[in-house]
């Protein structure tokens, strides 16, 4: 029940040249999604699966093409604003649900910042919480102390995550979006400055010749050991370059810091020059946004569109052709998976977001 189905449906319904059979399929998929969302409770704040942020972004996409849904989107907005104003999250001994984009407040902040009907004051409880989490120079409050399920990423236990999905860069992207939506805010700027200094210190040169970031903070350990502890030396939307490079470039933009923007550009350019090596990933994962080509495509598109990086535009076009050649792999996958981040919906959303397409859905993954 994440935003994958309404986002794909809204992208095809929004295109003027979509045929009737596809429109009909999109309308039916949208109705099915609304029925499921209406019948199940949300389990967390984030953009992933049954999260409130993902549902709100899905409703925004749906209301964009079906104006009759605007009242439902308004109700979702009010509920999310009211809930974030009343709720509290841990500021020490944290778990993912206390801050991240996938399950926590950063996801909710991205969803509200993407909504043009939201008032700047509505963002305040979420921004205040995330700014508090950034108040130590070493960002110590982000150290994962809640017990993690040993099946998933146990190497994060008692460490500070440096990924977009679960880490400090994802929080920074949410704060950048909040700053864009609400105008100037000294507290957000100070928080982003501390995050930026920390991310500059965490950057390192990969042996393959590009600038990147570790999956968890190195803390005086050499990065090679850090990589060896983990399942893959992943470079994707979720970890390393390109994802963290985008967060660094965005922080540089909102802080008007040329040096930071240059670090983001150097990282992505060096990664593209190295041929985009992204570790050993399974075949289906290599398609998706989180770990695969669809994520790299939307990031290259963002670097081309917003940072004016011509090389990123060229790689985006190559990735489009590569994903298009693998479309037949999507159909059997679509029988069981409707997820945006790890599924075929994200691949389709990336391919459907050609020039002129509505780009609001990109907030779901910290882009624009």
């Amino acid at each position: 029940t994440d935003a994958g189905t309404p986002i794909v449906a809204s992208l095809v319904l929004d295109a003027a040249d979509t045929d009737e059979a596809t429109r009909s399929a999109a309308e039916r998929a949208l109705s099915a999604w609304l029925a499921v969302v209406g019948g199940t409770g949300a389990s967390h704040y984030g953009v992933f699966a049954e999260g409130l942020a993902g549902r709100h972004l899905g409703l925004l996409a749906a209301a964009h093409v079906r104006p009759g849904l605007r009242r439902l989107a308004a109700a979702s907005r009010r509920a999310l604003v009211r809930r974030t104003a009343l709720d509290t999250w841990r500021t020490s001994d944290v778990g993912w649900e206390d801050y991240d984009m996938i399950m926590g407040p950063a996801g909710a902040l991205l969803a509200l910042a993407a909504d043009p009907e939201v008032m700047p004051t509505d963002l305040a409880p979420l921004t205040a919480h995330l700014v508090t989490l950034c108040d130590r120079p070493e960002l110590e409050r982000f150290r994962l102390r809640q017990r993690l399920d040993e099946r998933y990423s146990p190497w994060n236990q008692d460490r500070i995550n440096v990924g977009v999905a679960h880490g400090v860069p994802g929080v920074a992207l949410a704060l950048c979006a909040a700053l864009d939506a609400s105008g100037d805010d000294a507290g957000i700027r100070a928080a982003l400055r501390r995050v930026a200094d920390w991310l500059v210190a965490e950057a390192y040169p990969d042996p393959l010749g590009f600038i990147t970031w570790p999956t968890v903070a190195r803390e005086n350990r050499p990065p090679a050991r850090d990589v060896a502890e983990q399942p893959t030396a992943r470079q994707a939307w979720c970890y390393g370059t390109p994802g963290v490079a985008w967060a660094v470039w965005e922080i540089g933009r909102v802080l008007d810091d040329d040096g930071l923007q240059q670090l983001g550009r150097t990282a992505i350019s060096s990664f593209l020059d190295a041929g985009c090596p992204n570790g050993n990933i399974a075949l289906r994962e290599s398609l998706a946004i989180c770990h695969g080509d669809a994520g790299l495509l939307v990031l290259c598109d963002a670097f081309h569109r917003h940072a004016g990086l011509a090389a990123a535009g060229a790689v985006r076009d190559l990735l489009y052709a590569r994903l298009r050649a693998r479309l037949t792999e999507l159909t059997p996958w679509s029988a069981t998976n409707y997820a945006l981040l790890n599924g075929p919906a994200g691949v389709l959303a990336a391919l459907l977001t050609r020039p002129g397409a509505d780009r609001t859905w990109l907030y779901t993954v910290g882009l624009r």
């Binding site: 596809t22 399929a25 039916r28 998929a29 099915a32 479309l327 159909t331 389709l348 391919l351 459907l352």
Partner: peptide
């Protein structure tokens, strides 16, 4: 819009609607 991408999207949406 790319017809092959739209066809894949249609197949996905039909599965999501089923």
């Amino acid at each position: 819009t790319d017809p092959q991408v739209v066809a894949a999207a249609r197949a996905h949406l039909m599965a999501a609607a089923a």
